[in-house]
Amino acid sequence: MKLATLRPSVVLVAAGVAVAIAAYVRWSDRSEVTDSRSQDSHGSTTSLAAPVRPARPPVPGRDTPRRPAEPLPPPLAPGELAEVYESAVAAGEARPGERAFRANVTAFIQYNKAFAEDQANREGLSVAEVQELTYLGFLVKQTQSWSEVEELIGHDLSPDQRQAGEKLMHDINSAFKAAMRQLVADGADPAHRWDLIRATTKRYKDDYFAITGMNPDLLDDLLAGDLRREYSPSVTPVPDEIPHNPDYRPPSERPERGE
């Protein structure tokens, strides 16, 4: 068919179809990135606990990263956790360090309740279980503080001991997650899930103590030390930029003798 024989309406329809195709190609290329970013950034349609990775590579000049929502530290008053520790000591509690450490994790979960609920929904757990598992996660990470562990046990750990301690954390973490997800998939009773949590905590502590020479009392000191360092000058880094005191006046020069 000669082009000249085409009717104007046919050409216009073809042009319209072509424009539609072109628009769709460009739109689909863009939307796969921008939509997923906005979803994971604002958490409105995707899980807070699992930001969604854009299916297509972001393109410079077109796509920009957006910070996904994350759990944040709770606004605690200075000394608040130390007061929990001191009150536990005054009450004669056996594990004041753990008490205060738990108080911090509780505040963390309460402040980030939406994240805890989201994580619980994703994994088929209760918020109370997520809180206990967050406590376990923070506790386990704290026990990997080798320099402080060495201070508590009074001698250096060998590289093999440090490596074994870290491997223990990863091994038990992986085994726990697989076992818990299996329990959830099997529809296990919550009591069985709590049994698994307690057994995992005990197993980690027992094996960790065997590797490092730590014990329950020293572990409590480790947790307490974490709290008592709050705002400690020895661990609080100097801010990058310290504002000058507006009232500062340079001292006058020392008078020379006889002036």
Binding site: F138, Q142, Q144, S145, S147, E148, E166, D226, V235, P237
Partner: peptide, 11 residues
């Protein structure tokens, strides 16, 4: 895997 200059504070 650990710091030689600051005290590890997980929280």
């Amino acid at each position: 895997s650990s710091s030689n200059s600051c005290n590890y504070n997980i929280l």
